[in-house]
Design a protein around this nucleic acid. Structure first.
Lengths: 88, 88
DNA sequence: TAAGTATTTAAGTAATTACTTAAATATAAA
DNA sequence: TTTATATTTAAGTAATTACTTAAATACTTA
């Protein structure tokens, strides 16, 4: 079964907004932080929670860290939720 | 957009287990509580969170309260998650 | 009506969460 | 090298969460 961390990660509005931003295209940590009023440290902590849940990848590029979506984990959540809508 | 309460409701392991139990068939509050080691009051509070999130219905039947799934809200969560997997 | 059963509400608490600012680390550029 | 930029880590804190037990409410049955 799917990790509790994934659902916990998705339960925060700011983290879901980060996922929406990354859905558009890959972004560095700073580019993401620029779209929030929250401190960069706060965003970094949210990114870490998303990374732990394997919802995003982080790749160091020089002095930047480029974040991108890991779409495969979303499929697992969808699979669990789908069963409540269809007969199996 | 979908209510934050829904994601918050889904973020707890015990609440997801309650949803799995209700997916099987409708249950009274007591029948649900019997499947947990937690107090009945604790389960009642979880049921209330699921009800606020409109993930379940509650219907009083005599001295019992019968809980059942409200499948329509799941579809909204699935819709949000699906976009991370497919090109739109 | 009194007693029993089912459920919720209230009040309290320990643990967790979401932030903050300051300091640390890593890389780049002057 | 020093200074600037990007990001993370650490430490502290206020708010929220997930429970508990005890009391309240609602219904049923003797």
């Amino acid at each position: 079964m799917l990790n509790n961390d994934v659902y916990k990660a998705l339960s925060d509005e700011n983290r879901r907004r980060i996922l929406d931003i990354l859905h558009e295209k890959d972004h560095t940590a700073g580019e993401i932080a620029d779209q929030f009023t929250m401190s960069k440290a706060g965003i970094s902590q949210h990114l870490n929670i998303l990374k732990q849940a394997e919802l995003v990848y982080a790749k160091k590029q020089g002095q930047y860290v480029l974040y991108s979506l890991n779409t495969s984990v979303f499929q697992e959540v969808v699979r669990w939720l789908m069963k409540f809508n269809k007969e199996e």
